[in-house]
Design a protein around this nucleic acid. Sequence first.
DNA 1: ACGTGACTATTCCGATTAGGAACACTACTC
DNA 2: GAGTAGTGTTCCTAATCGGAATAGTCACGT
Lengths: 197, 197
Amino acid sequence: MSQDIPVTGYAILGLLTFGDELTGYEIKQRADVTLRFYWVSPAMSQIYTELRRLSDRGLVVADVRRDGGREDGREVTTYAITDAGQEALRAWMDQTPAGFPVLKHPVLLRLLIGHVTETEQTRQMLHDYVAELDQALADLSAVRESLRGADEPGQPFRFPSLVADWGLDYFDAEKRHTRLALASLGETGPEGETATA
Amino acid sequence: MSQDIPVTGYAILGLLTFGDELTGYEIKQRADVTLRFYWVSPAMSQIYTELRRLSDRGLVVADVRRDGGREDGREVTTYAITDAGQEALRAWMDQTPAGFPVLKHPVLLRLLIGHVTETEQTRQMLHDYVAELDQALADLSAVRESLRGADEPGQPFRFPSLVADWGLDYFDAEKRHTRLALASLGETGPEGETATA
DNA sequence: ACGTGACTATTCCGATTAGGAACACTACTC
DNA sequence: GAGTAGTGTTCCTAATCGGAATAGTCACGT
């Protein structure tokens, strides 16, 4: 009866296990810097929908207060995980299979049908992808660095650090795959460019 | 005005560039063995929805005939890409950015919040994931093998082969990442197991 | 011939999810 | 004290999922 919570609901519950009470808005922000790399950045509407559901089931408590403590401020609602929420999350982890990752990879999709356009166009796409990967690597590296100092066994960011390292490796692997594909396409490089590291 | 076609629509269009006329059902089957690895396996309902849209825009032609050629058989509709469809696909490839991949990775999501359960539970999950990766590798290898003989430059399956090789590398990389995580979790392995290759 | 079950083919429907727009208040700047 | 950047929440529409429902075909044994 409590098993009809979507994965995104558990993801939000999980974000709340790292300590603080958060507003929906703050949850969205945290999701945007962490969850987005290996899950989704849920839409605002979805976060508030989930929070209502979780609240209805007693897995989180909503704390409504007035902004700045003043009587006339607007209402701000923060959410915290409850004991029941901890248990539900644990039960989900222990008793339901994780499931296989789903990848929506537009670069690979386009590479698949590379025969409908010029090879040069495909090469360009792959080069662009490498640039985006570099950006993602930079963003994720920043996250990884911010976890330093609390990433040892027993410390709060041990698991997030493992995940970040995994993600960094993943992006590196993607860069390799992209280079291999470029090589296979007889990469000559855009005009005058020399091979990059 | 023709730019409001979802990516899945172009994916279907792309499947139709490999030659034959296909029924919606056959498209679903092909998607299940190829697209699923790096895009989605669209629901049947979605495939038929897209085919209607593509047909309305003249990007595919529907060919209705009676099963087995007999007058009394059921109606079967096959679809083929049109010249306009080829052009639309090409325009999409050349003029719209591919976009960054989206990964829905339940294993990483759970690893992130590994602190809510026992480490042994997390290890188990990672072992299960390796087993699923092996299965995926086997499936994709079979696809890859089926492309042999037509995977040289200029041949029809050159690009699908590139994509399959990329996918195989990706799954290998995932296995490595999983092993690294296991090692970091102080992997002792399930009772009596020895390290695998 | 007659069921039975597996496969092919299509449609339909309810429930999620995506993705923003809209709204409203706060806080800082010029 | 007007403007604009940021915070916090709600609402709406379209897209998507996922499978049930429907239905004909085929191969099989009886």
